[in-house]
Simulated assay, not measured.
Amino acid sequence: MQVNRSVASEARRAQILDATIAVVAEEGFARASFARIAERGGLSSTRLISYHFAGKDDLVAALVAHVVDGIGEHVGARVMAADTARGRLAAYVEGVISYADTHRAPMSALLQVAMAGAGGGAMDAPSDLSHLERILRAGQEAGEMRSFEVAVMASTIQRSVETVPFALQADPDLDCAAYARELVELFDRATRADEMADP
């Protein structure tokens, strides 16, 4: 019976998060009141939200964690499937951009939260670049990539992919596959060892 309650609780939390994402993405962070979220989620009362989340800050922190975890799962699977550092770098760039393209509401909600200065420590902390830095160092150690300052390159790559949700807001018809190909080519040329350069 406890398991059933746990499953039901997780389902309700997911329902509330989906409604929150929809309201924030479509109407902006300022409009995301519990009343509006309850209405969008088809909830009978805002008390259902308060039961699962301590307050708006807790709800927004859960939204941020939900979206960030989704990005990690989507991108991580692609990166793990590649068998070279150059392949993993390409998979990372393509993965982040494809997630932004296919999960526009969550990404828009994340941007709204960031622009509102909400989300607590999860939004205040700089992007975790350790995953990119590991890929780049492995590429250098394997001789696939040239010598360069890993921290600088990782930061540049991350900032480039983080701009895609903004680009999509400005141009919803943006060809994300072509955008990704250009960035993959750019950073492959910027990082690969001389002996791997095109003739």
Rank of each mutant, 00 (worst) to 15 (best):
M1I: 12
Q2L: 05
R12D: 04
R13C: 04
L17I: 10
L17D: 01
A22G: 06
V23T: 00
V24F: 06
R31E: 14
R31Y: 10
A38M: 05
L59P: 03
V60E: 04
V64H: 01
V68A: 06
D69Y: 03
G70S: 11
A77G: 15
V79E: 15
T84H: 04
A85G: 08
A85T: 07
A85M: 07
R88C: 05
L89H: 14
V93I: 13
E94Q: 05
G95H: 13
I97A: 05
I97G: 03
S98C: 02
Y99G: 15
D101N: 11
T102W: 01
P106C: 02
M107A: 04
S108T: 14
Q112N: 08
Q112H: 09
G119T: 01
G120R: 02
G120W: 05
A125H: 12
D128G: 02
S130A: 13
E133P: 11
A142S: 14
G143Y: 09
S155K: 06
R159L: 12
R159S: 13
S160Y: 08
L174N: 01
D175V: 10
A177G: 04
R181K: 09
E182Y: 03
E185L: 10
T191I: 10
R192C: 03
A193I: 05
D194N: 06
A197C: 13
D198T: 02
